[in-house]
Amino acid sequence: MSEFVPTPTAEVCIDSALVASLLREQHPDLAQLPLGERHEGWDNVTWRLGGDLAVRLPRRAIASTMVATELAWLPRIGKDWPFRAPLPVRIGSPNEAYPWRWSVVPWISGHTAYDEPLSALGAHDLGLALAALHQSAPADAPVNPFRSTPLSQRVDRAKARLTALASQAASHPSTGGARLDTDAAESLLRRGARRHAPGLVCAHLDIHGGNVITDGGRLAGIIDWGDAGAGDAATDLGQAYVLLGPTRWRTMITAYGRANRDTISRAKAEAVACAVTLATITDGRYAASGWDALVSLGVATREA
Rank of each mutant, 00 (worst) to 15 (best):
V5F: 07
P8I: 03
A10M: 06
A10Y: 07
I14D: 05
L22E: 04
H27C: 13
L35I: 11
W42F: 10
N44D: 14
V45Y: 05
A61I: 00
A61H: 13
I62E: 15
L71Q: 12
W73N: 03
I77S: 02
I77L: 12
K79G: 12
K79R: 14
P86S: 06
V89A: 08
Y98R: 00
Y98N: 01
W102V: 05
V105F: 01
V105P: 04
P106K: 10
W107T: 02
W107K: 02
S109Q: 12
T112A: 03
L118E: 01
L121H: 12
L130Y: 01
A131I: 05
F146S: 09
R157I: 02
K159T: 13
K159F: 00
T163W: 00
A164L: 13
A164S: 15
T175I: 04
G177S: 09
A184E: 07
A184R: 15
E186N: 11
L188F: 05
L189D: 04
A193H: 03
V201E: 01
C202E: 03
C202N: 13
I207C: 08
G209F: 03
N211T: 15
V212W: 03
G216P: 08
R218M: 09
G226W: 03
A228L: 02
D236T: 03
Y241M: 09
T247N: 09
Y256K: 01
G257I: 09
R258I: 02
R258N: 11
N260I: 04
N260V: 02
R266V: 02
A269K: 08
A271G: 07
A271I: 09
C274I: 01
C274W: 01
A275P: 04
T277Q: 12
T280H: 10
I281G: 00
D283E: 15
Y286K: 13
Y286N: 08
W291C: 00
V295H: 04
T301K: 14
T301W: 09
